[in-house]
Nucleic acid binder design. Structure first.
Lengths: 243, 243
DNA sequence: CGTGTGTTTGACCAGTCTCAAGAGCCGTGG
DNA sequence: CCACGGCTCTTGAGACTGGTCAAACACACG
């Protein structure tokens, strides 16, 4: 349909030059492949609910989430939204070859974004095969997540969808070195609903449902403890039947 | 969830060396960037229903569809399938860095696949930034399509989903130089259903529904003529509300 | 011309959406 | 410190879509 895409990536699949941005230190480490440009990156702060960029905006930068989080979504003609992805610290947003942002970003909480000049990134990737290759891997990683999303959203029933979502968020936790059993859900129920193709009411009901079944424990509105992950896996039967 | 992904691409976003494969002629054209390896590619033929590869198979080649078509899907633990994509002549299947195929391919009709050695493609991409860069663009293109799929499958209601699907297939037709008004649907209704997250019955009913509304005309089981594309666009309200 | 597969159609039912109201949480201001 | 207002989340009841099961039909193949 409409060309709705962009790239987001985990920092650890990026070239070393970009990894050096990770630390707040003024870039003691350089690699010969990547000249100075990355180091000039400024940081912008956004309040909860603000839109760092909207679909159609000219895209001059690639953003790296420093703290907080983003909801990435498409606005549809009928007023609905399709949440494409969430971005958390370490994720990159806005890679790809389009001149304009293909979707809108909204800050989930107070969020800091580091701005990486897009053109220079592109120039470097054309000069250095290692960078281009890394970008390719990054895109492939993105694609993996996108297919995972298709799989999750393609689940029949609200239980399967939400279970798959919780497990996916749990895996993200692991990725950030957090406890896989306690899932942090900073986004609104509405965002989860628009991500899964459900309504906020159904999401809420399904949470209550899981709680009643003893599958999860709702610590507070933003934290869920997974009590029976195996049961959740069974519900989210999006497990490739190998062979 | 599970690492279910792979790359497929349109030929025209590939490096020139790969484009030369396009013609059946024994590669009169070479580009200095790409040495001989591409030229050795053999062609394998598959009957309707056969599986060129399955998820978990060791992945030695990247395949280019010469004729026919493929359904790419994931088998789920509960016996259901999630169709990830369809591949038609000119499309590449199996890019990406995984050692094994992440999903299964099934021939829609009699299908010819050209086999491109995967390791050599990778080696070349590491040596030549242009190839790596092209692969990156390709992956970005794939991602665009994946997000489009999310959008389509995320539609509420069967009419929106099917309308979006028909329009997407129509655009593919244009891409191949065919009439955008007559959509060719070589795949099974079941495959369309598993692509959209519906059942075959619902897909069938919705087709009948569209026909009754005068939106489409069913030429034969594999060809649909779009009578009121604008109405279909309205149904598939997956149109980014710009601004 | 039969057989098997794929497709259409029908009836019934489960599940989700819609609309609506109430409960909880948080920041603000008195 | 408490009261207020707004927003989010939860819960409820009814309508409706799409899933399931079952059967008839159409088509391709040998």
């Amino acid at each position: 349909m409409l060309p709705g895409y962009a790239l987001r990536c985990r920092m650890n699949v990026l070239p070393p030059c970009l990894n050096s941005i990770k630390s707040e230190a003024p870039a003691a480490v350089r690699c010969e492949a990547c000249p100075a440009p990355w180091m000039h990156c400024s940081v912008r702060k956004f309040q909860k609910g603000q839109y760092p960029f909207s679909q159609g905006d000219a895209q001059g930068y690639v953003y790296r989430v420093q703290s907080g989080g983003l909801t990435l979504f498409l606005s549809l003609a009928n007023g609905r939204r399709q949440v494409v992805d969430f971005a958390f610290p370490g994720d990159l947003v806005g890679l790809g070859s389009h001149r304009q942002f293909q979707f809108t970003a909204q800050a989930i909480t107070r969020t800091e974004l580091r701005c990486i000049p897009r053109d220079e990134l592109r120039l470097q990737s054309l000069k250095d095969a290692r960078i281009a290759s890394m970008l390719y891997e990054t895109a492939a990683f993105q694609l993996e997540e996108a297919y995972d999303h298709i799989l999750t959203a393609g689940q029949r029933g609200s239980e399967g969808k939400l279970a798959a979502f919780l497990l996916a968020m749990s895996r993200r936790n692991v990725h950030h070195g957090d406890d896989p059993a306690v899932v942090h859900l900073p986004m609104l129920r509405t965002d989860i609903a628009d991500y899964l193709g459900l309504t906020a009411e159904t999401v809420s009901r399904t949470f209550t449902n899981f709680k009643a079944q003893g599958l999860i424990k709702i610590v507070d509105q933003r934290h869920v403890r997974l009590i029976e992950p195996r049961s959740l896996v069974r519900l989210a039967n999006a497990i490739a039947a190998s062979g």
